[in-house]
């Protein structure tokens, strides 16, 4: 009997060890980025299309949208996440990082210390970003002002605070597959802007019990993670705006009946208004083609 228990215990250890090993936080292969050099000017476009500042600027910050001290709190059913400082400050920000560190964070949700990031950081979207865009974004972010503000810890309770559990979670929900089909160059651009950069689905798509996006109900609206109200669906079944209406909304914040965007969406508009008109039109085309 004792032998059997010992055997079971050993098998259990091996299984647990294997799971931990196979779901460990992995960086990107360094050689993938060595040949790439970033373009600051294009990186700025990636920065606004990716909406980095919406979360990483301070609470209520209205001055310079490129100052990224972090500190905004995101209340969810899993706990409260606090956006970290991602300014180029060498002590409090990410100034000491390499391009590979940055790519590992953005594409794989892996920190330079080899830990899993919580997916409040939308790497499940950014994982579809092209390597060149990652390099360009990194080049731009290194030009931003430093902020000497310490990042605050997340307030996440057991069991969600066990970061190792994010390994299996990533196996389930982190992949580079596109959700929607795209048949024209404009549709592809729109899809890239929405599914790889804009992370629209992180709020507009409902989640399952594990916090993964329900791709079958893509962009059909979802409860607000803060618990108050709903984030509207944007598929044609929920939204009958014309493509021009959608593009104009993304540019100015004005709805077709000339209300104006508020809440988190006002941040999105600030970013989207800085994109070229063709990009906003491509997003509108993507939204109209949703089903």
């Amino acid at each position: 009997m004792l032998r059997l228990l010992t055997l079971l215990f050993c098998v259990g250890l091996v299984v647990a060890g294997s799971v931990l090993w196979f779901t460990r936080a992995e960086p990107v292969a360094p050689e993938r980025f060595t040949a790439l050099s970033g373009d600051v000017v294009h990186g700025e476009q990636v920065f606004y299309a990716g909406g980095c500042a919406s979360c990483h600027q301070a609470e209520g910050q209205t001055d310079d949208p490129t100052r990224l001290p972090g500190g905004q709190r995101f209340v969810t059913q899993f706990g409260t996440f606090v956006a970290p400082n991602i300014s180029p400050d060498p002590i409090f920000g990410i100034g000491e990082w390499s391009l590979t560190d940055f790519a590992s964070a953005v594409l794989n949700g892996t920190s330079p210390e080899g830990r899993h990031y919580f997916p409040a950081f939308p790497y499940t979207t950014y994982t579809r970003m092209t390597d060149q865009d990652v390099a360009d974004l990194w080049a731009f972010m290194q030009t931003l002002p430093s902020a000497d503000v310490e990042s605050q810890p997340h307030d996440v309770g057991f069991p969600f605070n066990i970061r190792a559990s994010l390994g299996p979670w990533k196996k389930l929900f982190l992949n580079t597959d596109w959700v929607q089909p795209a048949t024209t160059p404009e549709a592809e651009r729109g899809r890239y802007l929405v599914e790889a950069l804009g992370h629209c689905s992180e709020c507009h798509t409902p989640r399952n019990l594990l916090g993964g996006l329900q791709t079958a109900n893509w962009m059909s609206g979802a409860p607000n993670p803060s618990g108050k109200g709903r984030i509207p669906g944007v598929t044609p079944a929920h939204l009958d705006w014309s493509p021009e209406d959608i593009a104009y909304y993304l540019e100015t914040g004005f709805t077709p009946d000339f209300d104006s965007a508020g809440g988190e969406m006002a941040n999105v508009i600030e970013n989207m208004s800085k994109l070229p008109p063709e990009d906003r039109a491509a997003i509108a085309a993507y939204v109209k083609a949703l089903n």
Partner: peptide, 17 residues
């Protein structure tokens, strides 16, 4: 003008539903 509308609605107006 739109920016001023958005600035105020962002900070001071509750979501619609």
């Amino acid at each position: 003008v739109g920016k001023a509308c958005g600035d105020c609605h962002k900070a001071y107006r509750a979501p619609a539903n």
